[in-house]
């Protein structure tokens, strides 16, 4: 990884330490009546290590600035490398955050084929079959164990039909 990127990460961690010191510890620890000694100690440690990390990154930058420039221009674009992963993350986030409202079966039925296509599935039907079969298997197992997956309209319909 490039020293410049290492430095940016170190500075980001230092910014988090400042936020923790000025806002999180007073509002989320002290205000709740809890002792702030241990959180302050950990925050101090993190700030110290981040500072050491930043200084080492700066040292590396001075050591090999030419090499870093030479690497530039050969890399594929950000979206080429991370586009698929970012899309998968977004879809996963929507799936998990929407599950409370939509229920497990419906959200997973939509998620699995979409995720399979993001992973590059060339088949049209296999992802749809996976999306249909897998949630129903989990539903069946949970039902047999007298437990419940997150409930939604499909679960309500199935319960109505099966009970």
């Amino acid at each position: 990884m490039k020293p410049r990127k290492e430095l940016a990460i170190a500075l980001g961690i230092l910014a988090f330490c400042a936020l923790n010191l000025l806002y999180f510890i007073p509002a989320q620890v002290a205000a709740e009546g809890s002792s702030t000694t241990y959180p302050h100690l950990l925050n101090g440690m993190l700030a110290f290590f981040a500072l050491a990390y930043a200084l080492e990154a700066v040292r590396q930058m001075w050591k090999s600035p030419a090499g870093e420039r030479a690497e530039a221009g050969e890399k594929p674009s950000f979206l080429d490398v991370y586009g698929r992963t970012l899309l998968l993350m977004a879809v996963t986030g929507v799936w998990l955050f929407a599950m409370e409202a939509t229920g497990f079966i419906l959200s997973t039925f939509i998620f699995l084929p979409v995720a399979a296509y993001i992973f590059g599935s060339r088949s049209r039907w296999k992802p749809l079959v996976l999306g249909l079969v897998m949630p129903l298997i989990f539903y069946g197992v949970f039902r047999a164990l007298h437990s419940q997956l997150p409930q939604g309209p499909v679960e309500a319909l199935l319960s109505h039909l099966l009970d």
């Binding site: 998620f111 699995l112 992973f119 996976l130």
Partner: peptide, 14 residues
């Protein structure tokens, strides 16, 4: 088929 395997792993994790 890795494109079906990894989404399946995610569902198992959840």
């Amino acid at each position: 088929d890795f494109s079906l395997f990894f989404p399946g792993v995610m569902a198992c994790c959840v």
